[in-house]
Simulated scan of single mutants.
Amino acid sequence: MLKFALNHMTVAKASFRDMVALATSLGCVGVEARNDLPQPLFDGMRPEAARDILAASGLRLLALAEVKRFNDWSNDKATEALALMKIAKAAGAEAVSLIPRNDNLGMGNGERQATLRVALKALKPMLEDHGLVGLVEPLGFETCALRYKAEAVEAIEAVGGTGRFKLVHDTFHHTLADGGPIFADHTGIVHVSGVVDQTVSIADMRDPHRVLVTRGDRLGNIDQIAALRAAGWDGPISYEAFAPETHALANPAAALRASMDHITGALA
């Protein structure tokens, strides 16, 4: 049985409590909370209260997002990361999300790899102190300083971070980065979304194109999940849709159920 999960971005307008209730009703194994939504994190409640709500619902807090531009390391970035880890630990999260810079800077060959290692080396003991995993998410955009999973894995292994750092395999970003190796053993979570717009080129795809996974999907979600599963991966598949039309769905439960049924059926 597939282990589905819900990233709060998919229902960005919902409160934390409503997002948890939706995930519970759909039989999800867990959720991902975010600090970049219009509403306060955990609806403004203490992280311990959020932990209790999740525990009562039988859900895992798979990750707390996010540390932005983590590979542009500085004292201020360390302070930001530490603050998020403290909240994550109090909320019972399993991981924090690490998002690379995406501003077309720090792109030089050699420079990219060096700055990534600096950040991972600094983050590793912080994560160990809080009992957390760092979820590293390469972004497939051409302006991202960490576009390829191979570079992430190389850096993780170089700093002795295997197991403490895991990859986010995002089906959208994997497609934008021209595919490549999947690194199932290094994968912590899979993010799924679909693109059904037939007019946009892959190079021009952006977050607002990302809807739920349906039969019209252009990203090859089914093939990517199948490849990961064939390689032995059996972790959570979390919906992360950014499209305004997804956020505006009148019945997100029905749409998500239909998408889950589509993925499950296609992989059967």
Rank of each mutant, 00 (worst) to 15 (best):
H8M: 00
A50G: 09
V11S: 11
G58S: 13
V196D: 15
A83E: 10
D52A: 10
V118W: 04
A65H: 12
K149Q: 12
H262W: 14
F172R: 15
M19W: 14
A90Q: 10
K68W: 12
D103T: 02
L59Q: 11
P236F: 10
P38C: 06
G106H: 01
D234T: 13
A248D: 14
A250C: 00
T143Q: 07
A56Y: 13
M1L: 13
V213D: 07
G188D: 12
L82F: 03
L62M: 15
S57L: 03
G232R: 13
N109I: 04
E80A: 09
D18R: 04
I156P: 14
P138T: 02
G188C: 09
H173A: 12
T162D: 10
H173V: 07
L22Y: 07
L62F: 11
G188E: 09
T143S: 11
L84E: 15
D43V: 01
A49N: 05
L267G: 08
P236K: 01
T24S: 10
L2N: 09
P100D: 05
I156K: 04
G108E: 13
D76N: 06
L249F: 13
A152N: 00
D72K: 07
E142D: 11
K124Q: 04
R147Q: 09
G27T: 01
M126N: 06
L22E: 05
I53P: 09
N7W: 08
F141A: 00
A23S: 08
L41F: 01
R17Q: 12
A12V: 09
G216P: 13
K13E: 12
Y148R: 15
V190S: 15
D217S: 02
L6C: 02
L212R: 04
D178G: 01
G163P: 09
H169A: 14
A203H: 05
T246S: 09
T187E: 13
G188P: 08
L139S: 08
D18Y: 06
N102C: 14
R215Y: 15
A49R: 06
D36T: 02
M9K: 11
A155T: 04
G92C: 01
G44N: 11
K68T: 15
N102G: 00
S97L: 15
Q113P: 10
E137S: 03
G188K: 14
L176D: 04
A145L: 01
L64W: 02
T214F: 07
K89A: 15
A203L: 11
M85F: 08
E151D: 14
G27P: 04
L22D: 04
H8T: 06
D197N: 10
V118M: 03
L212E: 01
Q224V: 03
D261N: 12
S15K: 00
R101A: 13
L61Q: 12
M126E: 12
R17E: 13
G188I: 06
G160Y: 03
G180Y: 02
